[in-house]
Structures are given as C-alpha cells and as structure tokens.
Amino acid sequence: MTDKSKPSIAQRRSAARFAAIQALYQADVSQVAAGRVVQEYSEFRLDGLGQRDADEPNENLIDPDRGFFADLVQGVENRLDDIDDLINGALEKGWTVKRLESVLRSIMRAGTYELMMREDVPMRVVITEYVDAAHSFFDENEPRLVNAVLDRIGKSLRPLEANKD
C-alpha cells in the first residue's frame, strides 16, 4: 500500500478479526493454547496474511492490528466458559456451541468476546463485522445465525446501546 492509501484503524481491526477467527479455529481443532497460536501468527502469518507468493508482495494487503488480534484470541481463551454460556443461551433450544461447525464456533466466540469486553467498539459494528466474516466462509443460513445470536447477546450485554437503535 502506498502512504496515500494507508489503511484505517477500522480496516486494520477488520483484518485482525479475520485473522483471529482463523487462529481460534486452529486453536480449537488442534487443541493448542491461544498464546502459542498468537505467537505463531505474529511470527509467521500476519505479515503475509492472504499472500500467496512471497516474491510478489500484494500491496493491497492490510496489516492487521496485532494488539487487537492478540486480545481477541487470548481473550476468547481466557473467558471461554462465559462466552460459551452466552452463546448457548442465545442459540435455539436443543443447540449448543459444541454442535456448531468449528469456523462458525470461532466466529461466534470472537464476536461474543468483543461484545463482552470491547465496549470501545459499538455493538452494531461488532455484529456487522462478524456477519461479514461469516459470509466469507458460508452461504445464507450461517451468517443469519451469527446475526441472530450476536444480536441476542448484544441486547443482553448492552441494553442501553441496543435500545438506541
């Protein structure tokens, strides 16, 4: 990217969210601690996130906000039981977070953590970001589920903010 088109904070955070979803998926399926995954991503993956050929750098790639990325991944691990309880409470009866597909589970966990702990980010921004991420991996049903679950959680965690809409 040229200096004239330097990515905004919002763009860098979006890139961090996407990387966090991937890292949470990796931690979930491989049962590796979040700190180790954050270290691996920081050392080997974040610089070239999405880059196929190291010899031809893609100037359009956005460098993720590394602090935000680490907060999301480690925060999910640190608050996993609380996060899963909130998701379970927002899912339809008979469904649990453990029944969700791994990527979908990672998306919902990251979004729930952000709603819980990142009050500096508006509720609508959180929901929109994770619904958009869900569209990157899934068709219609999963993004709608992400929207419904995060909306329910957001309304319970941030009632004053939810009532503004």
Score class of each variant (00 low, 15 high):
36 R>L: 14
158 R>D: 04
81 D>C: 06
33 A>L: 13
3 D>S: 14
36 R>I: 09
112 T>I: 03
62 I>L: 08
10 A>H: 11
63 D>W: 05
137 F>P: 00
65 D>E: 12
118 R>G: 00
25 Y>V: 00
69 F>S: 03
153 I>Q: 01
65 D>A: 14
39 Q>K: 07
81 D>W: 03
67 G>D: 13
113 Y>F: 15
16 A>K: 08
17 R>S: 10
57 P>M: 07
56 E>N: 13
11 Q>W: 02
131 V>Y: 11
69 F>I: 07
124 R>Y: 09
80 L>E: 06
130 Y>Q: 03
121 V>D: 03
87 I>S: 02
152 R>I: 00
118 R>Q: 08
145 L>C: 05
72 L>R: 12
45 R>P: 00
16 A>Y: 05
140 E>Q: 13
165 D>N: 07
75 G>H: 08
1 M>D: 07
102 S>P: 15
51 Q>S: 08
51 Q>T: 10
103 V>N: 11
131 V>P: 08
162 A>Q: 04
2 T>F: 09
145 L>D: 04
48 G>H: 12
58 N>L: 07
135 H>M: 13
35 G>L: 06
128 T>Y: 15
79 R>G: 01
132 D>C: 05
92 E>P: 09
155 K>V: 00
102 S>E: 11
81 D>A: 15
13 R>K: 15
37 V>H: 08
39 Q>F: 06
57 P>D: 06
138 F>M: 07
46 L>Y: 02
75 G>P: 11
98 K>M: 10
156 S>W: 01
112 T>R: 03
47 D>L: 14
33 A>C: 05
165 D>L: 09
97 V>W: 02
127 I>W: 09
4 K>P: 01
150 L>E: 01
84 D>G: 02
56 E>C: 03
85 D>I: 11
136 S>H: 14
96 T>Q: 12
20 A>D: 02
61 L>P: 01
41 Y>K: 05
123 M>C: 06
162 A>W: 07
43 E>T: 07
76 V>W: 01
83 I>T: 04
37 V>N: 10
148 A>S: 12
142 E>V: 07
17 R>Q: 11
6 K>M: 09
51 Q>K: 05
127 I>A: 04
141 N>M: 12
110 A>I: 00
130 Y>D: 02
152 R>M: 03
4 K>L: 14
119 E>P: 00
5 S>R: 14
29 V>D: 14
